[in-house]
Structures are given as C-alpha cells and as structure tokens.
Amino acid sequence: MRNLLQLFVRFGGLFMFLFLEVICFTLIVNFNERHNQIFLSSSNAVVGFVYERYANSRDYFKLDEQNAQLLQDNQQLLANIEQLQKKLARLEELTRDSLPRRIAQRTEAGNDQDDFEFIGAKVINNSITANNNLLTLDKGKADSVVHHAGVINGKGIVGVVRSVSNHYASVMSVLHRESRVSVSVKDKAYFGSLVWKGNDPKKMNIDAVPKHAEFAQGDTIVTSGYSYLFPAGIIVGTIDTFWVPPGDNFFEIEISLVNDLSKLEHAYICINKNRDDLLTLEREVND
C-alpha cells in the first residue's frame, strides 16, 4: 500500500495527465462527427485485418462442412429451378397472346431498372451476446460499399453498414440498441420501426404502429422499403404477441426473428443506386 502511495506521489502528474487525456479523447471521438468517422474507419481497418486472418484460418478447417452445405444448397436450388421452369412453361402456354400477358410484358419493361445492387461478402466477425452487436464484413470502399447501406442474407435482414474502411465494413446488427429499421406487416400498409430491446437474439420489437392497425398473430413482417437502406419485402420475422400499453396510441409488438444471426457466414450488402439522389433531396428538404 505504501509503495502504491509512493508511486502515486512520484508519478501523480503523469497519472492525472493520462486520466484527463482519456476523458478528453473519449469526448473527442464521441462528440465530434469528423473525428468519430476517422476513429471508426481506422480502428476498423486494424480490427478487420485481424479478424480476417482469424476467419481465414478457421474457414480452412471448416471446408468439408461448408462443401457439404453448398452441395445441399445447390441441390435445393436446382430442384427449385426445375419446379419454376415447369410452372413458367405452363403459365406461358396459358397466357399466350392474351391480355394478361401483354400487361405482364409492360410491367416487366417498367421494372427493368433495379434500384438495388447486391454485393456478396463474407462475415469475418460477429457477435450476438453483447448489448450492441456488431459484425465485420470483408468488403469495403474498394468494392464500392458505402456508409449506411443495408445488409441482408438469404434468410432475412442482418443490419446496416456503420462505417467502411478500404477493405472492410463494420455492420451494426439489427441486434443493436441504436438500430432502427422501417418495417411493415406483409400485404398491409401499416409500418413501424424495428428495434431490439437487448435480451433475446431471437426476439425483436416493433414501435410506432398505430392503435387502429389490424393484424394477427403469426403475420409476416417484411421491410417496408421506406428508406434507401433496404429493398421492400425482405422477410424479418413473424408476430408473436401484441398489445396496446394503457394510455398509449401505439401497439407494442413482439416478433420472432426468422434469421438466425448466430450462424452468419455470408451476407449481401444492398447498395441503393439512387442513394445519392435521395440523400440530396432529403437534405434539401431538411435545410
């Protein structure tokens, strides 16, 4: 104890200095937008590199398992193609030279330009146990990933890109307390925002659905498409329970997530081609 005190007397100034500088730099990187961006993207570059090395070596040992999985997926897909082709053939036969066919052709032409482009990426780090979960993908600015792009995988939504360095992207999982995603009940117009209360990685909540909305237990929840992050109609989950808290005008909805975020291996980053356009418009409106 005495030694400790002597140490403090001798280096008290240094301790005080380091202590206050830690406070200052915490303030700097948390409350200065530009400093925050620089801090995130540079820490991202270092952390991303380490995780990629780790994921690579881990992948090597899991190749057998993954091969088996891919084979199974391929079989499934081939079977689907088979089925779809049969259906398509039947439909084409049915609608040859008929009015519905002409309508279908016209709408096809109208929807020709897709709004979204998808970039496949490997998940090199992932957490689901923390209060604010983040994951890292092995694609970055060099692969034209941008800040604030949605991330999905084959089963549903995953999260939103929070910062990008040249070769990595850090993604705020939907299992993050600050995550807000606009979702709606499938085939109905009601929409709300998807939030995570921070307990169960399989359960999420939806806020701000008005009291007069009608839906039932088991209804599917999909992304609403009311933002530039996600295309509309990406599956999120199914409604578990819902109630209106006394004195409130909005439903409290609890859903179970379809996607199992603990087993992520690959994900797709959704890049909205009209993103810049939308952002400029929104900025003009806000100013």
């Binding site: 005080m16 206050l20 730099f25 303030l27 200065n32």
Partner: peptide, 19 residues
Amino acid sequence: DLFYDSPGIHASAAVFTIY
C-alpha cells in the same frame, strides 16, 4: 470547447500544456 463546439479538443491540448 463549449464555444468552439469541439468537445475535448482544446481541453486535451490544455491538459498537455499543463503537464
């Protein structure tokens, strides 16, 4: 910093100077 709207930047420099 309060007036410069840059929390921590002037403070870190001032702490360094007094050190």
